[in-house]
Structures are given as C-alpha cells and as structure tokens.
C-alpha cells in the first residue's frame, strides 16, 4: 500500500492522536453523517424489509419450538419474540454487522488525508458513526420494531426500562464502534482483510446474542460469552428492554458496558498509534 506524501505529513500524523477537543466540529460531522444516511431512501427501505423478514422468520421458529407455551431459560414465548424484533431493529447500529467504510479508505489510500487533518481521527470516525447510527436507530430500527409490535405483539417497555435502555444503547454504540474500528484497522497490516472482517463479524453476531439469546447457551458457553465484550452490544440492552434486569442489575450492566467501552477504546487508540507509526516509517 502506498500513501502519497506520507513522510511529509509524518509529524502531524503522530500528533493527530492528541488533539484539543472541539465538540462543535464533531457535532457537525455527526449531523452530516446523519443527513447522508437519510438520503439513501432505497437503502433503508430495503433494510427495513430485510430486517422484518428475518425477524418474522425467527418468530415462526420460536412459535414452532414453544408449542407448550411455557417459559424456557427465563424466556417466555413473548420474550423470545420481543428479543428477536429488538435485535433485528438494533442490527443497523452495529449489533449484526460491522461497517466496512474505514477499511475502504485504508485500502484506497484516502485515509492519509483524514489522518493528516487537525482532528482526532478516532473522534472523526466515532462522530460519523454515531450520526449515521442515530439515523438508523430512529428510522430503520423503530420502523422495524413497529412491524414486530403490530404483527407479532412485541413488547413495549415501561418508562424506566425505556430510559435505562437509552443509556444502554448509548454505551452499546461506543462498544460496537470501538470493536469495528479495531477490526477495520487490520487493513493497515493485511493487503486484504476481508477474511478477518468475516470472522470478526460472525464472532460478534454469535457472542453478542444476536443469533440466539445467551440465555439459551449451554452454561459453559454462556460463561465464555459473559467474559467477552460482545454481550454489551446486544444482549445487555435487550435484557433491559425485556425487563429481565432491574435495580442494581441495571447498574451492573451499565458498568460492564462502560468498562468494555473504555478498554476497547484505549485498545483502538493504541492500535491507531501503531498504524500511524507504520504509515510514517514505512510509508504504509
């Protein structure tokens, strides 16, 4: 990979990690990402249809397995249905797939321009991602969930649960962004990191509880899942929405999410630092 002018911009690259925080700038970036997402109407309509289809499909499976109608592993049939629609609604905020756009700029070499700008590179992508995902959540996510509410009686939470859910989603966004950032960044070292992204993606969907609630996992596998950061992205917000977590458990969930958000962010920034050194010293 070749980055034109990488040596010339070397000094500004290394300082890009530590930049004064200019909230206004990041707000503007986020707003633009939000608007850009709102332009692709065909994309989000298709997205809603796809999410609703998969949610409906899984609901039929749950209806078929829950023939007795009793709760299993703490999940009633309605819990399972609610969980399904909620996770499909959250797919567009990073619960079900990783964004590839940062990787594409690394491959194309455009990343060098973004790296040499006087902003925090991490902050830039975080704001972009937040703007886009907020749009997805507000439109794509809520319409998908509305379909589930209307046709499959997916549950609506109480006010306190809803408020806790909003906090949990905010933290989940930070975790899923940091994870995606780390995975995308591997493009600096691998000519073609598609395979890594594929694997990272399936690990995310499986261990976050997106494919199946963690409650159904065999105990040993569940223990593994609880030690990984992915539950912070899907499982914990969903359990709050379902009302399965109350009181102190909610605060514990927040703590787990915030902890992972912090750890992954530090890891991501550390990795970015190495990536930049690679760019500066070896020219990419």
């Amino acid at each position: 990979m070749e980055f034109p002018g990488s040596t010339a911009t070397g000094i500004s690259l290394l300082s890009a990690v530590r930049m004064p925080i200019n909230l206004r700038l990041y707000y503007e970036i986020a707003i633009r990402a939000f608007r850009r997402a709102s332009v692709y109407r065909a994309a989000y309509v298709a997205g809603i249809l796809t999410n609703a289809f998969f949610a409906a499909l899984r609901c039929f499976v749950y209806l078929a397995v829950y023939h007795a109608g009793t709760s299993v592993a703490g999940f009633s049939p309605n819990d399972a249905i609610t969980y399904t629609w909620l996770t499909q609604a959250l797919i567009s905020i990073g619960a079900g797939w990783l964004a590839w756009d940062l990787m594409q700029t690394i491959r194309s070499g455009d990343v060098i321009t973004d790296l040499s700008r006087p902003w925090s590179f991490y902050g830039y992508w975080l704001s972009r991602s937040l703007g886009e995902r907020c749009f997805n959540l507000l439109l794509r996510g809520s319409v998908t969930y509305l379909i589930g509410f209307l046709f499959f009686a997916a549950r609506l939470p109480h006010l306190t649960e809803a408020l806790a859910f909003v906090v949990a989603i905010g933290l989940a966004l930070l975790v899923s962004f940091a994870y995606g950032f780390i995975v995308n960044l591997t493009a600096f070292w691998l000519i073609d990191n598609t395979g890594v992204m594929l694997i990272a993606n399936i690990v995310l969907t499986f261990f976050s509880g997106f494919l199946l609630p963690l409650a159904f996992f065999p105990p040993w596998l569940r223990q593994v899942a609880l030690l990984l950061p992915f539950q912070a992205i899907t499982s914990l917000p969903a359990e709050i929405w379902l009302g399965h977590l109350t009181g102190a458990a909610v605060w514990r969930a927040f703590a787990v999410q915030a902890g992972w958000a912090l750890v992954l962010m530090l890891l991501a920034i550390r990795m970015l630092h190495f990536a930049m050194r690679k760019v500066v010293i070896q020219g990419g």
Binding site: V65, L190, G195, M197, T205
Partner: peptide, 27 residues
C-alpha cells in the same frame, strides 16, 4: 487472504448452525 476467507465463510455458516443446534437442542 484466500484461506482466511475460506475459514471465515465456514465459520460464519458453522456458528449459525451452532445457534440453530442450541435452539433446537434446548427445545
């Protein structure tokens, strides 16, 4: 890249099947 992607695709459908197996196994 080739091998990583081959493993990636196998793992993707593999873990999907594990999820299916856990679900059907549970019920």
């Amino acid at each position: 890249s080739f091998w990583l992607e081959l493993v990636g695709f196998a793992l993707s459908s593999g873990l999907e099947f594990v999820a299916l197996a856990i679900l059907v196994g549970t019920f």
